[in-house]
Structures are given as C-alpha cells and as structure tokens.
Design a protein around this nucleic acid. Structure first.
Lengths: 199, 199
DNA sequence: CTGTCAATACCGACCAGTCGGTATGTTGAA
DNA sequence: TTCAACATACCGACTGGTCGGTATTGACAG
C-alpha cells in the first residue's frame, strides 16, 4: 500500500523524511528549501504536501522519533529499580548510544530546539523536561542519601550530560576510531567518578 | 564622528550588531531577515549595507567577538605556567563566565557553527580547534604524568566541558538564582573531581 | 568667521529571484 | 465511477542586495 512500482523499495513518506533529515542536518532547517527535499527524495512538491501538512511537520516528526525512543528506554531503566550508580550509568550509555545512532535527526532537531514552540511541539518539550527532571531527581536523591558526592549541583551535572549529547553530532563520526559504545562507557565512567563519594 | 544628533548615544554600527544579535539568538540566522534587523536597529537597509558587506558579516563579527576574548584569556592562563589542576580550573571558569556574559552572541553563533565554512571563517575555526587542542593536550599530558586519572580520554573530557558551554545559552538565565561564577566553580569542581587520582 | 568642496553617512525605492504553499490535473487500482 | 497517490503549473509574499540620491560633517582657503 502506498508503493509505486518504480520506487527504490522504501515508501515515499520514508524517502521524504530521510531526504529532509539529511538536508536539515547538513544545511539547517531554514536554509533548506522544500524543493531541495523533494528533489533528493525523487518526488515532487505535490507528493510531499500529500503526506505532510507543512514543512515544519518534517521537523516535528524527527523530534518525535528521537525522544520517543529515549523516553521508553528511560522508563525501562527506571523500572528496573536498581541503585543510583547503575541507573545513571544506564541512562548515560543509552542516551549516548541512542543519540549516536540518530546523528542526523539529532543534528537537525537540536539546532532548532530553541525556536520550536509552536503548540505542536509543547507535548514533546514537556516530555523532554520530564526526562531531564528524572535525571536531576535521581542525582539529587542520591546526594541526599550520601550515595553521590555533593561536589556539584544536580543541575550542573545533568547539563554536563545533556550538553555532550546535544553537541554529539558535531564531533562524533560513526566511522571514527571510537565506537559509540566506548564513548558512552567513558562518559559514564567520568561522570560517576566525579560523583563518587570519597571512601 | 559618525554620530548624528538624534541617535541614542550608541553608534549606528553597534546598534545594528546588537539588534542582529538579539534576533539571531531568538529566531536563528536564516529565519531572521535583514529587514527585521534594520527595523529593530532603527535604520534602513541602505544604512546596514553601508557598514556591512553582507548579512553573513554580522555573524562573522559575533564569531570573532566571542572567540577573540576566549583565546586571549587562554593564552594568559597558559602563560602562568601553573600546574594542570589550576590551569584546567582557570580555563573552565573563564569559558563558563565568558560565555555566560555573551549569551546572545554565543546562542546566535553556536547554532550556525556547523554551516559556516565559507573561507571567511576558516581562520576563526582554526583558532577554535587550537583552543580545543590546547585543553586536550593539557589533559593528555597530565594523565601521562599521573596527575590526572585516565578514567576517560581527553576527548570525552573536553567534549563534556565544551558541550556545557555550547548549550549554555539554552539553560543559563542571567537573572536566575545562580550567578555564572557559581556555575563555573561547580563545573570545575565536578570535572576535577572526576579527574582526581585516587590517593 | 565664512564660503567651498569632497567625503562620509545614511535613506528609501526597487530589483530579480526564491520561498512555502495550493489548485488542478493525471493515473492506476478497486 | 471513485478514491488515493502522486505530478505539474502556478501564486503572492518576501528575500538579500543594489543604487541614485541627500543630509551632515570636516578640512581648508580667504
């Protein structure tokens, strides 16, 4: 359904999204024209506006793709009910590996995050705040319990973590010497070393 | 010189730059039209193009304003010739406080950093790489000397630091409860705690 | 102090081209 | 015939940038 006999095997909608993702990541959202998107996707503007109501919907779709995955992963990790050290490590490794796996989407979205608040994205932004608040709450509680050192506030620690992932697309290369899993482990080691209580 | 008797006391060129800075930070570079800039600055397009050769020059100017300050500060810190712990702390505190003091410029520029590589900015980007390489080299040397723990690679540590400052504009509020100096000290404490060798 | 003359600073109308979006047409399957 | 799935042609708004013109200033001569 929805497949013509001449397309490359992928649905038209998916091709459009993939093309938009590449172009937004390369040039930015505003600098990319709808015409460029349809050219790369091998369709026409009529086709794009058949599947998407507006150019912005392409961005919203990428936004959702990124955060829905991270949020379900977060819930799964929290549901384990393990100790703070294990939990924070799992969150960091998931967000690094998950973000690295969607470099282009995250590059496209992270740049426009500040601008996007057009009603359509408020639900998604609320989810994102919930994610950050969960991390901060975890750190805060563990510091109160004496499990983590109070060397820095939960805000600064969480900003360190999310700052890395927000700018991950600028320095991570999938064909580089270090796979995402290694970087994820290093970052988790580093953060947890900073939070370790002197014994 | 260059001042009419009706302006607010600031030079026209500075007013244009300030207006562009605000608008780029709010809406992004591409989403901001030259017309919006001149409207907010209280001049006309002819006036803007009298002082700037192209719209892009406004961005380049902000780029330079940010990095020239950071680079001279870096050189001054390195010239002290102190131990790695003191040096890294000084660098972190300078970059946090300095970036916070130029929130809007850094918001405007950081978003477009990936796209800007039009010859005009190559010199500036080379300087920026030099900055990062200085930090990484400092960490690498200290780790080899056993002063810093090898818990994470110099790359990951430096990305943690620069990731925070690159996304600082999204969460730092100058009228918030925490002044930039406090955040700077917390971040330095946190990073150095992670790098401390177990004694 | 006054008159002259460039140079600088700035204005506002105006391009040619591009933008996101739409209205209408065509095609093949059911 | 009917409907989804696209293609094509096109629109009005707006874009970055240009250009001829003018108001203001400073230097210098007398």
């Amino acid at each position: 359904m929805g497949r013509s006999k001449t397309d490359g095997g992928a649905g038209v909608r998916e091709r459009i999204l993939a093309a938009a993702c590449e172009l937004f990541a390369e040039q930015g959202y505003d600098a990319t024209s709808v015409q460029q998107v349809v050219d790369r996707a091998g369709v026409t503007k009529g086709g794009l506006y058949h599947y998407f109501g507006a150019k912005e919907d392409l961005l919203v779709e990428m936004y959702r793709a990124i955060f829905s995955e991270r949020l379900t992963a977060l819930d799964a990790i929290l549901a384990e009910g393990r100790d703070p050290e294990w939990t924070l490590r799992a969150i960091i490794e998931d967000i690094v590996v998950g973000t690295a796996a969607m470099r282009q989407e995250s590059a496209a979205v992270s740049r426009e995050l500040a601008t996007m608040d057009s009603g359509r994205t408020q639900r998604l932004q609320a989810d994102w705040r919930r994610y950050q608040e969960a991390v901060r709450g975890l750190i805060r509680q563990a510091q109160q319990d004496g499990v983590f050192s109070p060397v820095a506030s939960p805000e600064v620690v969480s900003w360190s973590i999310f700052g890395v992932t927000n700018s991950l697309h600028t320095w991570f290369r999938p064909d580089g010497p270090k796979p995402a899993e290694t970087i994820a482990r290093e970052l988790a080691d580093f953060v947890l070393a900073g939070l370790k209580t002197p014994s």
